[in-house]
Amino acid sequence: MKKIGKGIAAGFYPSGMSGGGDSSQAMVKVQPDGSAVVTVGSCDIGQGCKTIMAQITAEVLGIDYEAVKVVNDDTDNCPLSFGTFASRVTYVDGLATKMAAEDARRILFEIAAVMLECSEDVLEAVDSQIRVKGNPDKSLSIGEVAGAGTFGMRKFILGLGHYMRDPAAMDPETCECDPFCTLAWAASFAEVEVDTETGEVEILRLVNSYDVGKAMNPTHLEGQIDGGATMGVGAAMSENLHPFFPSLEFQPDNLGDYAIPTTMDVPDMESVIYECPSTNGPYGAKGIGEMTANTPGPAIVNAIHDAVGIWITNLPATPEKVLRALDAKGA
């Protein structure tokens, strides 16, 4: 008999190392033509570090995204970063990059103030121009400012940023401490169909919702959510390093034996993005990289319980485990 069940699971996750103490530095150099080069030490493993750093820099300097180049490919040349892990890049590197871009913008304002004969604090950087707020006629293109600053005034338009949250100290009396930069929140909903004769579980629908603080790049977020959810589906349904534990005789010894989901194993998925800004992240953003793999598994397990009343406490939920649990329940 085929039975349908629904389940949900919720979770939260910090951005950056719990307990603080992880550093990222960034440099933003404005070139004489008004384009910018951002240098950060966190690598891009496909989740969009380069894109996000370019977006932040373009926003702060008021220039086009295309006018920003990101360099992050050599740890000898790049500023310090603890790395790409702990869902920290958008948050920690993002803050460092924002600081560095603001620092570079300050230098541009110094130069422009001389050229426009005004004070620095009436200036703004928008539409690839440095201009007097409320008086768009008094403006210079960012290239004019950077060119005059670099060659005329011999300035080096290099902004620096360094973000590090202080390591969280615990109060010895009360054990109170404040370990997290910010928390991102998530929930998954799963609908499954369990075949009580074969033990097979089919995921009919999976909805994953995330509080990302600020959706800097919604397309990337969807990609990250889909990818994480698929890892969660793999963990819940098929991935197993020791399928016949405790016997290690049949452990997987190549990629094909370790069953990650294929196109045919991924259910219809839907991503829901929710923005509850963090108080200190760049533009309110939070990192959700790692947590995207966490809630689908428990949601699927809860849905299996809802369908046939068994608890799978050891993933993956293979047909064998489902059948054994059904037997034990006397179903």
């Binding site: 989740q47 397309t219 959810a229 294929t262 196109t263």
Partner: peptide, 20 residues
């Protein structure tokens, strides 16, 4: 049909949705 055609190509990052 796209899913079927790509079923022999593994991807660990995207969850396939945006590939399809």
């Amino acid at each position: 049909e796209v899913k079927q055609a790509l079923s022999g190509n593994l991807c660990r990052c995207t969850g396939y949705v945006k590939i399809i």
